[in-house]
Computed example of a mutant assay.
Amino acid sequence: MRGGKNNFVADAPLVDNLGKGFVVSGTVRKAGSCEGLGNVRVQIWASTERGGEGEASNRGSVMTAADGTYRLETSPIVPNFGQAHIHMSYDDEAFEPVFLRPLLKSREDTSIAVDFNLAPVADDAAGS
């Protein structure tokens, strides 16, 4: 992603919600097998009606359910740099890091579904 990790903060706190009015949901799967990955941390941050994406109240993490699904409600998303979008990441040690910037179709959208396919971290010791 151009601009690097774009305000990513490691270990954002687990939250029940980041407001009301917009829902981010999806499934986290293991690349190759498409197996749902449970107990995986997904981080979400965005510019909302409550403030910019750097605001602590607009950033949080959720853990996936046993089947790999996740859901987080936020305040309505507002355009930033001309586009309504959110930021999402997976950054842990078991799988390669992933940073996404999904765009909303319109400012009036009330939800977005975003799936992750995670590739296991290569075992460097295997090549030694």
Rank of each mutant, 00 (worst) to 15 (best):
G21H: 00
I86L: 14
A84N: 03
N6C: 06
P120E: 11
V114P: 07
V40D: 02
D91L: 05
A113D: 03
G51F: 00
A84F: 01
V28I: 14
E55S: 09
L103H: 12
V98C: 08
F8C: 08
F8N: 09
G52S: 12
M88L: 15
E108K: 11
R29S: 14
E108C: 03
D11Y: 02
T110N: 07
C34N: 13
N17K: 13
G4Y: 06
S61L: 03
S25V: 01
P97L: 09
L118K: 11
V98N: 09
D67L: 06
N7C: 10
E93D: 12
L37I: 13
D16G: 01
L104A: 07
G36M: 13
F22T: 02
P102L: 11
D67M: 10
V114D: 06
F81A: 14
P97D: 04
S75G: 13
N80T: 13
E93T: 15
V42W: 05
Y70P: 08
G68R: 07
L100A: 15
A10I: 02
G51E: 09
F116C: 03
E35F: 05
D123C: 07
F95V: 13
M88D: 01
E73P: 06
N17E: 08
R71H: 05
D115N: 15
F81S: 13
D115F: 02
A66D: 14
F99C: 08
W45Y: 09
D115S: 10
N6S: 07
N6L: 12
H85Q: 15
A12F: 00
G82A: 02
E96K: 15
S57E: 06
Y90D: 06
V62C: 03
G38I: 10
H87Q: 09
D123Y: 02
N17M: 00
G19P: 02
V24K: 01
T74E: 09
F22V: 03
E93A: 13
S47F: 00
A10L: 10
T69K: 10
V114L: 08
H87S: 03
P102Q: 10
R59K: 06
G36L: 12
S75C: 05
G68V: 02
L118T: 13
A65W: 00
G52T: 10
M63S: 07
K30C: 08
T48V: 10
E35P: 04
L118H: 09
V62W: 01
A12P: 01
P79W: 01
N80A: 09
V23M: 05
V23T: 14
V23S: 06
G82N: 08
V15H: 01
S75E: 13
E96W: 03
R29L: 11
V62F: 00
D11P: 01
S25W: 00
